[in-house]
Structure formats: structure tokens, C-alpha cells
Computed example of a mutant assay.
Amino acid sequence: MKIQLDDLSHPAVKSLLLEHLKDMHANSPAESVHALDLAKLKHRDIRFYTLWQDDTLAACGAVKQVDLHSGEIKSMRASKALRGRGFGHAMLMHLESESRRLGFQRLYLETGTADYFLPAQRLYLSHGFEPCPPFGQYQADPYSLFMTKAL
């Protein structure tokens, strides 16, 4: 298993991100989808990582700087074909480690509230994330669950 900072140019990365966006729109109203597309993930305040199992893309995730002391997890996704093998856990551990290295004292995230998002919610809760009020530019939304963790 190899995790690396990624430039989002590999076709497998583009495919996984399109799968992610498609699933977000299938499980939440459009106005409640906060997933970033490929162009927005290339922003200078975002560090995007991929996790590879041999030559197969297994997961991705990003950390977006919210302010000087905090970051937000974005685009956490494990490949459908490889779910249940711990790649999401490994990516989350990496994102937390990188966030500490970047000097962040707190991490935030937004995920959905539909049943589809229950596995993601369980993963975040198992890593010490707790529900919180909306942060940054987010507004209260019944389709969004906001979470945070002190690092």
C-alpha cells in the first residue's frame, strides 16, 4: 500500500472522483452536495492524496485549509470494488497525520445524513470525530452532518 500526494492527472483518479460526485448527487439534493469537482480540488489550499494497492487506486482524500489552525477533510472515497479492506481507515489516518504535520489543531468534515452515508459516519466516529455545528461557509442543512476532531 502506498499513499502519495497527487496531481489529479491519472485517469483512475478522475474516474474515482466522478464516481464520488455521481453517488453524492444520487444520495443528497443538489443544493446539499458539497463534494468538489476535479478543478476545485486543484486549489492551492487543498492537498489531495491517493492510496494505491500495487497499481490499483484504492482510495483518495484531501485536506483543505479552513484557517490558520484547522483543516477540512474533502473527497474521502474508497473504490467500490475495494471497500471493506481498511483503505478508508488508512486514508483517514494519513489525512490526520498530514494535518498535524501542516500545523492544524482541528479537523472538520461534512458528510451526508442519508443511510448511504452511515458507513462513513461510523468510520469518522471510530476515529474520534464528533458532531458539531456548521463551520466555515456551511449553513445548517438537514442533509448534512458536520463533525470535528481536535488533533
Rank of each mutant, 00 (worst) to 15 (best):
H94Y: 13
L21D: 04
T56N: 13
F87E: 07
G136T: 01
A90H: 10
L82W: 11
L107V: 10
L145F: 12
H25W: 02
D54G: 07
M91S: 14
G103Y: 05
D54P: 06
L8C: 03
G61R: 08
Q121Y: 13
Y124W: 13
A150G: 01
Y138T: 01
L16T: 08
E98T: 11
H94Q: 12
V66S: 00
D37S: 03
S79E: 11
S75R: 02
D37H: 03
D141N: 13
D7A: 06
W52L: 11
H25L: 12
G71C: 04
D7V: 02
K2T: 11
P11C: 12
S99W: 10
D67V: 01
K74M: 05
F129R: 06
G128S: 14
C132Q: 08
R100M: 13
D141W: 05
A39H: 04
F104C: 08
Q65P: 00
R77I: 07
K64T: 00
Q137R: 06
D54E: 15
W52K: 11
A39S: 08
H10I: 07
D141K: 04
P119I: 11
D45I: 01
T113S: 09
I46P: 00
L41P: 00
H127L: 13
L109V: 07
L68I: 00
A39Y: 01
G86W: 10
Q121N: 12
P119Q: 10
K42Q: 15
R106N: 03
A30W: 02
R83N: 00
H34V: 10
L36R: 04
S28I: 05
V63K: 01
D6R: 03
A58Y: 08
L17Q: 04
A35N: 05
V66T: 02
H69G: 02
H89P: 04
V66C: 01
K14N: 06
V13E: 05
G136S: 03
A12M: 10
L17M: 06
K74Y: 00
K64D: 00
A150F: 04
Y124F: 15
T111L: 12
F135L: 02
E72S: 01
H94R: 11
A114C: 05
T113M: 06
M76Y: 06
P134A: 12
Q139C: 04
L17R: 05
A59R: 13
A26Y: 05
P134Q: 06
G136Y: 00
L41M: 04
F48C: 05
A30C: 08
G112K: 10
L51Q: 14
A12E: 15
S28K: 12
L36S: 04
E19F: 08
A140M: 04
M1P: 06
F104K: 09
E96P: 08
A35Q: 06
D67N: 13
R106Y: 01
R47H: 09
R85C: 10
I46H: 00
H10Y: 02
R101M: 11
L51S: 14
R44W: 00
A26F: 01
